Each structure stands twice: as C-alpha cells, then as structure tokens.
Computed example of a mutant assay.
Amino acid sequence: MSKTWFITGASKGFGREWAEAALERGDNVAGTARNLDDVQELVDSHPDTFLPLQLDVTDRSADIDAVRKAHEKFGVLDVVVNNAGFGHFGMVEELTEDEVRAQLETNFFGALWVTQAALPIMREQGSGHIIQVSSIGGISAFPTVGAYHASKWALEGLSQSLSQEVAGFGIHVTLIEPGGYSTDWSGPSAKRSDEIDAYSAVREEAAKRPSANDPGKPEATRSAILKVVDAENPPLRIFFGKAPLGIAERDYESRLQTWREWQPVSEEAHGS
C-alpha cells in the first residue's frame, strides 16, 4: 500500500533524495521548499503525486497551513519528515544572539511546529510516523558547531519524550542520526560567525575530523529510509553512515567512566 509523505526541505540533500525515492515507488509526497522553482522537476515528473508547498518552517502558522493542505490533497498523512535545517559554524564565544536564535528557529522550532501540526491528524488516523532528522551531533559534540549541537540535542530530547506520549495512538517517532555526508551542509547552506583569531588553532584541529575524508553518499540513504518507514516496529534512533556508531561508543564509554568515578560524590549529594 502506498504511503503519503510530508517532507520539509525537499529541494536538496536528504529531503530531495527521500522525496524522489518515495515518488519513484508510487507514494504521494507533499514537499516543501523556500523556492518552489527548486522542486519544479519533481512537479513535472510526478504531477499527480507530488504537491509542492512553499514554506519557511520558522513560520508556525505557515507550517500548520502547509500540513493542512497536504492532508486535504491526499486525505491521509503517513510519514512526516522534519528535514529542513542548516549548520552554523562558530565558536561559542563568536556566536551572536541572532545567529543562535536563527539556528534554533529552523532546526528545532521548525520541526516542533510541523510535528504539532501533524499530530492531531495522526491521532485521528490512529497511525503515523514522525521522522526527525537529527545528527551524530545530536548525541555527541565537537568544536565549532555548538549552536548546531544545541538545536539537535534539543530535538533529540523533545522527540524521545514525544515517542512515549504518542505510542498509544499508534504513532511512531524515529530520530535519523547521520554522520558526515557529501551534501552542501558545510558548504553553501551553512552560516558562519565572524572569527576570533584566538581560536585559530582550535579551528584548524577541528577541520581534521575524520568524517571529512570519507563522507557518505546521500543517494545511498534512499533504501535505508524506506526500510525505516516500512518497518513494523521502527527504531527510536538509527545512525546513517559508518562513522557514528564508533563515535557514540567512545563518547558514551567516556561518560560512563566519569559518572562511575564520581558516583561517591553523587551519592554524597543525595544525602542520607
């Protein structure tokens, strides 16, 4: 049976790959983009099953309206993919208020507003699947992208709570946590803070991250996302790419070691 998808940021990157994968197998897709010219090819190739929607996800009322239009068009809403987002590069000291707010407004609040718009429809259906595009940066952290991490860690916590709240309604939640991919995330789509010279050495070291040497292929995620949305019991979290599992294992082993080492102090803080 075909599915109906709502995908934000469908013009490029993962959103474009997944929209094409869904359309090519006969699913319906409502795809959003800031500029509809960027999705015209999808309109031309799938005029009956692709609904283009112009949207800036930071506009809550527009998010609600876009989800409503998708539901009115196709009559059902099976999969909602919160993919729209960008990376901001800047040391924590370099970040301006406007830069941090813009990062959170898109990556976190945009996903929240779309999710809120979809939930009443999915509750009424008694089914649905919310796909949140997070990152290995949603569970770990690296220099130069603190604001980005803040947005993804927030999305991770929100989504884990959400998964427990909506399970009884037949709604699944999955956090996709990709590693480095050859998209334009760190290129034209990225925003950058004005640099402070004192951090030059930190910046140079951060540029040597291994993920930059062997990025994943975005097109390879097509079959993976279809397996996730077609699963009877989809995971709450899944890594995309080879590198994230190793990063997570090292990070969590270090956390557990520190927590255990300091457990006597933790228990002291509990009181008798």
Rank of each mutant, 00 (worst) to 15 (best):
S2L: 09
K3V: 06
W5G: 00
T8N: 00
A10P: 05
K12W: 14
F14R: 01
G15H: 11
W18P: 07
E20Y: 04
E20A: 05
A21P: 02
A22P: 05
G26Y: 04
G26C: 04
V29N: 04
A30C: 09
A33G: 03
L36V: 01
D38P: 05
D38H: 00
D38M: 01
Q40D: 04
E41C: 01
V43R: 02
D44F: 00
P47H: 04
F50Y: 03
L53A: 00
Q54G: 05
L55Y: 01
R60L: 03
D63T: 00
I64T: 10
I64W: 02
D65A: 13
A66W: 00
V67T: 01
A70G: 08
A70D: 03
H71S: 12
E72K: 09
V79I: 10
V81Y: 04
N83H: 03
A84I: 00
G85L: 05
F86S: 02
H88E: 06
V92C: 07
V92R: 09
V92N: 10
E93L: 01
L95I: 11
E99Q: 10
Q103K: 12
L104P: 00
T106I: 06
F108I: 09
F109T: 00
A111M: 05
L112K: 06
T115E: 05
L119G: 08
P120A: 09
I121N: 03
M122Y: 01
Q132M: 12
V133A: 09
S134L: 08
S135P: 01
I136A: 11
G137N: 11
A141R: 04
P143S: 08
P143I: 06
A147K: 07
A154L: 02
L155K: 04
E156K: 09
E156V: 05
S163M: 08
S163F: 14
Q164T: 13
Q164P: 13
E165F: 13
E165P: 08
F169R: 02
F169N: 14
F169L: 06
I176H: 03
G179L: 06
T183I: 09
D184T: 04
G187Y: 11
A190F: 14
K191N: 12
K191E: 13
K191A: 15
S193H: 08
S200Y: 13
V202G: 11
R203A: 11
E204G: 04
A207G: 01
P210W: 14
S211G: 02
A212R: 15
D214S: 13
P215S: 12
P218R: 12
R222V: 09
S223L: 12
I225G: 04
V228R: 03
A231D: 11
E232S: 08
L236S: 06
L245A: 12
I247M: 15
R260H: 14
Q263W: 09
E268W: 13
H270R: 15
H270M: 13
G271Q: 14
